[in-house]
């Protein structure tokens, strides 16, 4: 297979949909992603400074359980990493690089990657999840949450893309 020879988005989408359906059917909830990052941050904080981590009420949901790292979404994300790693090797698509827009310097890219990540991390907590847990899982349940999130995400993204053409073009 030649480099970047991705599958049809409809085939990949159908596979993703069947994975999500299997998740609903087998375990009774959907796929997720962002809460694993929040959990790891909370647990990391509790190792650095247990008193400070305990003072953050939001993190108590992760810390006041018997084994915080025995978490379903965290294990799913570990699987996601290895599934994507295998897929990138199968497709001959694995390469260490700093990926960025055509007209962007490395310093700017580090800033947009980290700054964008901060916004995503904050927004995912406010929205109770991200593209996986709310948009995809909620969307497929026809949950109001999923459809609000999808619509406002596309509006927010289109506005930024219009104002910052140089990011990715």
């Amino acid at each position: 297979m030649k480099r970047n020879d991705f599958w049809s988005p409809y085939v990949a989408g159908a596979g993703l949909g069947l994975t999500l359906l299997a998740t609903f059917t087998i375990v009774g909830w959907g796929l997720g992603a962002s809460s694993a990052f929040s959990l790891l941050t909370g647990v990391g904080m509790s190792k650095l400074s247990p008193e400070y981590a305990q003072s953050l009420e939001y993190f108590s949901q992760y810390l006041n359980v018997k084994a915080p790292l025995m978490n379903w979404v965290l294990f799913e994300i570990i699987g996601l990493f290895f599934g994507a790693l295998a897929a990138a090797h199968i497709g001959g698509n694995f390469k260490f690089k700093l990926d960025k827009g055509a007209n962007m310097g490395n310093g700017t890219r580090l800033f947009t990657a980290f700054g964008g990540g901060i916004l995503i991390g904050f927004a995912s907590r406010l929205a109770r999840g991200c593209t996986s847990g709310v948009a995809l899982s909620g969307g497929a349940q026809l949950a109001v949450s999923g459809w609000i999130f999808v619509i406002s995400m596309f509006i927010g993204g289109f506005i930024v893309a219009a104002l910052f053409r140089m990011l990715w073009s």
Binding site: I77, G116, F122, A135, I151
Partner: peptide, 20 residues
């Protein structure tokens, strides 16, 4: 979720990724 979705979309275009 309406505000969270919009902020998320902004972060998505800046970073080029979502969590998964």
């Amino acid at each position: 979720q309406l505000l969270g979705g919009a902020l998320f979309g902004i972060g998505f275009v800046f970073s080029g990724y979502c969590p998964g």
